[in-house]
């Protein structure tokens, strides 16, 4: 007797979408994936060089690249990059380190979750930026208040996603484990935790985005270092290529953080369709 695997094993994502005659598949895929963004940058470069765009506001991209290059090689931007990564990194890691364990506990213990939910909702709905003055009053204008601001905004997505993940674990799977005599600890480790991982990753990615957003805001409002500060500062000093260089750096940071998380998720969730 033979059994058919519903074809799922073979149902790999198509390697390319445009397999037009003549065009090599790899090029076709690159064109499909990155064609539009390439056209965007090419359009910018041409429009700025020819003068359709005001080059004082939108400098040609080669000048932006030049500003980025000299900022990095001279080391001037490196300090900013380092301090920004440090601020966002400490805040994000603390938020993850506190948010995931707390969420795992809260998701399992109904009374705790019920008691904490209203206050969580209130905090979450209060914009973190509105609280920045309070944090400054409490923690001063230095690093602590900035990191705390980012931490504050970052912990909610990860906490709520973790709680949601735990609460939504299929009760039937838990009962199945119980029917084999699994202890509470085993059920937590072998069922609840793995089942929550995809949801936790949704929270992680949301938190990473939030961390960068608040990083930029904090650095624009009250800092004298950092990439966000450089965006503002370059604009004040009318160093527009440098301003765009800093903006691209921030975009790159966001993309890199997301890429790392996606990679991690793929490794941990090979079993799920969503990670394919």
């Amino acid at each position: 007797m033979t059994y058919d695997l519903t074809g799922a094993a073979q149902r790999v994502r198509p390697k390319w979408t445009i397999s037009a005659k003549g065009i090599s598949p790899v090029l076709g895929k690159a064109a499909a994936d990155y064609g539009l963004i390439f056209a965007f940058f090419a359009g910018w470069q041409i429009a700025s060089t020819v003068g359709w765009l005001n080059p004082a506001v939108f400098p040609p991209l080669d000048r932006v690249a030049q500003a980025l290059w000299s900022g990095i090689t001279s080391g001037a931007l490196l300090d900013d990059i380092a301090i920004s990564i440090q601020r966002a990194g400490i805040a994000f890691i603390s938020a993850v380190g506190l948010g995931i364990p707390l969420g795992l506990v809260m998701g399992q213990i109904k009374p705790v979750e019920r008691a904490l939910d209203p206050i969580l909702q209130l905090f979450r709905q209060t914009s973190a930026l509105a609280l920045y003055p309070v944090f400054i009053l409490l923690l001063g204008l230095g690093e602590t208040s900035k990191v705390f601001l980012i931490f504050w905004a970052t912990i909610f997505p990860i906490l709520l996603a973790t709680i949601g993940g735990v609460k939504e674990v299929d009760a039937k799977l838990i009962e199945m484990a119980r029917s084999f005599g699994a202890s509470r600890a085993t059920i937590f480790r072998r069922v609840i935790l793995p089942a929550s991982v995809p949801s936790i990753f949704v929270g992680l990615r949301l938190s990473a985005t939030t961390a960068l957003l608040l990083l930029i805001a904090a650095e624009m409002i009250g800092a004298n270092k950092g990439i966000g500060f450089q965006v503002m500062n370059a604009q004040y000093n009318f160093q527009i290529p440098l301003m765009f260089a800093a903006i691209f750096l921030l975009a790159f940071l966001g993309l890199a953080a997301n890429a790392v998380l996606v990679l991690l998720q793929r490794r941990l969730c090979r079993w799920s369709v969503a990670s394919q």
């Binding site: 039937k172 799977l173 009962e175 199945m176 484990a177 084999f180 005599g181 699994a182 085993t186 072998r190 069922v191 793995p194 089942a195 991982v197 969730c269 079993w271 799920s272």
Partner: peptide
């Protein structure tokens, strides 16, 4: 009631491992 993060082998062995 299979655990989606375990392979067929992992699922079948699950009861034993729990024990």
């Amino acid at each position: 009631r299979l655990l989606p993060w375990l392979t067929v082998l992992g699922n079948v062995a699950f009861g034993l491992e729990v024990q």
